[in-house]
C-alpha cells in the first residue's frame, strides 16, 4: 500500500468506530477533514469535536492501530482547528444510526429516540460526554441523551 491511494485510506478510516459512540465511525462523525498523499506519506488531518474531548486521543490511537494492521506505515496524523467542527457535517444517514443507537441526533429540539415524541424536557445541559445533553421524554418517560448542535 505505498501507491498513494487515498480512497483506500478513507475506506479503512470508515471502519474505525468513535470510541464513545461505536455506532458511528470517525469518518461519519466528521472529524477526518482530509487525506492527502505527499512525499510518500499519507497526511491525515483530524479536527477535535470539543477542545477537551478525551476521545480524540483514543481515536488517534485506534486509527494508528487500524492502518498498521492493514500494512500501512507511511502516514502522519495532523490536528487542525479550522474550520471548527460542527454537527452540520453529519449526514442524515449518520443521524439515523445515532437514533437507532438510542441517542437523539443533533437538531434544534431534542426528539425522543424511542418513540419520536417532540414533547421532551431538558434534565441537564451536560451529559456523560461533552457532546451530549440529557433529556427525558414526556410521553414514553424514557430518559435519553441528545447530541448537542454546535
Amino acid at each position: 500500500m505505498q501507491n498513494g491511494n487515498t480512497n483506500k485510506i478513507w475506506e479503512l478510516l470508515n471502519t474505525v468506530p468513535d470510541p464513545e459512540i461505536p455506532a458511528i465511525s470517525v469518518v461519519e462523525l466528521g472529524v477526518i477533514r482530509n487525506v492527502i498523499f505527499q512525499e510518500n506519506s499519507f497526511i491525515i488531518s483530524i479536527t477535535p469535536t470539543y477542545s477537551g474531548c478525551p476521545a480524540v486521543k483514543a481515536f488517534q490511537d485506534d486509527i494508528k492501530i487500524c492502518l498498521k494492521e492493514n500494512g500501512i506505515e507511511n502516514f502522519e496524523l495532523k490536528i487542525v482547528y479550522s474550520p471548527a467542527w460542527t454537527t452540520d457535517w453529519m449526514a442524515e444517514e449518520t443521524k439515523e444510526k445515532l437514533r437507532k443507537y438510542g441517542i437523539s441526533p443533533p437538531s434544534e429540539k431534542a426528539i425522543c429516540p424511542q418513540c419520536n415524541s417532540k414533547s421532551t424536557t431538558l434534565v441537564s445541559e451536560f451529559g456523560a460526554t461533552a457532546c451530549k445533553s440529557f433529556h427525558k421524554c414526556n410521553d414514553c418517560l424514557e430518559p435519553f441523551e441528545h447530541f448537542k448542535c454546535i
Binding site: 470539543y50 477542545s51 477537551g52 461533552a130
Partner: peptide, 9 residues
C-alpha cells in the same frame, strides 16, 4: 465538562 473544555482550549 466545562473544566474539560477549558483544559482542551
Amino acid at each position: 465538562n466545562i473544566s474539560l473544555d477549558l483544559f482542551g482550549q
